[in-house]
Design a protein around this nucleic acid. Structure first.
Lengths: 242, 242
DNA sequence: CATTTTAATATGTATATACATAATAAATAT
DNA sequence: ATATTTATTATGTATATACATATTAAAATG
């Protein structure tokens, strides 16, 4: 793992520092409230100025990954599986950033005829098949979320992509599709037999249900996503200011 | 309106600058894609260094209120921060906007000793009583939400206010308290006996649970709110753009 | 006239420096 | 032994400075 900063690189030092800090945060050594080295020391280790280091730290503090305390130090924030209202990070990235190890329990790829909802959102006919991606993900102890995604046929996805890579990265680099707008609807539901089975809970147990519509720069629909979150394993957070 | 920075104030300059910028952004003159003065000019106007001004700008850029473009300038973001305007309507206003007629089934006002959570949020001791407001609201056919609110004792609320008026209006006009920041946590829960009774559903049925922390301009806590929404009667929507 | 070069403008990156303030630990006085 | 003071440590605030880079407009060139 690269643990130093390349001064000859065109990548800005504070960006390199930020990425490096993210890796540190993921490291079990620093997880769960562990303190980072102090700013002066750390800046010397990385061979950058304290100001530049603080630029990187600030970003992670804004995101809630780090907590600073005057006179004390800077520590990795306590992990609560929560989602800051859509930071446009992938699921894995967000979980990794919080030091939560993610396991993919199931991955199922298929081409299916869309139902009315999906066809309507994509503005296509119900006989034009779309790529369906089902995923069961969670902690090593057990799954806590079941995702179902549908992708617009025009994107060009074949189903042979490496879905272990972040989805938005695949879309951006391979297909030049940039997810720009997201509309979400969140509600509570009782788990039906299928979902209960997947999440290993009792039928009828409450789950957080998230429906998500994703659009590209031109507001063209690209993804329709359904997520079923096991109760208490996932908290959705929204912060707003007027 | 204060439009200058007080160097003798104990409030940090970059915080003062941030608040000032927020006011500028609200101003119709700057809204919707208008450019701010450039950094050097603005820092001279405010009589602070460019570095300090950038500290304030960074925060607003991170929040998505401002957009910077190298070589061009900094403008007010054009996106209609929908979650913003949406969330700051009162419950009745929001329902009215959706064309849903609202009936108030129960209203209960009391002064109670706060529990640990509430006392901690308000930064008071558990023996200082706070105003508690319980409300059961919904459609004429039946209730679909049960709210519990606690208010900080320093606001000055007596409990004799007319709670049929929008709450934020009462706070603003009568007590000069302006709710500015709201943090929400949304999760799914199983209804306990009490909630199930209120919402007229079976114990164990899923409900959407919303915890809400409300702060004033100075980030002082003013309200702690819990909401239990009957499943499928309420959908929480979030729209975000990058 | 069209193209290229140059200048002007505004944000981006990076450092060095100085002092303020909160929290804790160590030393001192009562 | 117990307060009180003092020193230490780490983040917080603020400035001055220098140069890099993206964008646009103006000037020079063919």
């Amino acid at each position: 793992m690269k643990l130093s900063i390349d001064h000859s690189s065109p990548v800005p030092l504070h960006i390199q520092a930020e990425e490096l800090l993210r890796k540190m945060i993921e490291d079990p050594e620093f997880r769960n409230g562990k303190f980072l080295p102090n700013e002066v020391e750390l800046s010397q280790q990385l061979e950058i100025s304290r100001t530049t280091l603080r630029q990187a730290l600030n970003k992670l503090v804004y995101e809630g990954l780090l907590v600073r305390k005057k006179g004390i130090g800077t520590k990795v924030s306590e992990k609560t599986v929560s989602s800051k209202s859509m930071n446009w990070k992938s699921f894995s990235q967000e979980m990794a950033a919080r030091g939560i190890p993610i396991r993919n329990f199931e991955l199922h790829i298929s081409w299916v005829k869309p139902n009315e909802d999906v066809a309507h959102f994509f503005e296509i006919k119900t006989d034009q098949k779309v790529l369906k991606l089902e995923r069961l993900r969670g902690r090593p102890e057990g799954p806590f979320v079941y995702f179902v995604s549908f992708f617009h046929p025009n994107i060009g996805l074949t189903g042979d992509e490496d879905f272990k890579r972040p989805l938005y990265e695949i879309l951006e680099t391979e297909y030049n599709v940039i997810a720009t707008l997201s509309k979400e609807e969140i509600s509570a539901r009782a788990a039906d037999g299928f979902i209960a089975g997947k999440l290993e809970i009792d039928t009828g147990s409450p789950v957080l249900f998230r429906k998500r519509f994703v659009y590209d720069q031109a507001d063209k629909p690209i993804e329709f996503n359904l997520g079923y979150y096991k109760s208490d394993s996932f908290i959705y957070t929204v912060e707003s200011r007027r």
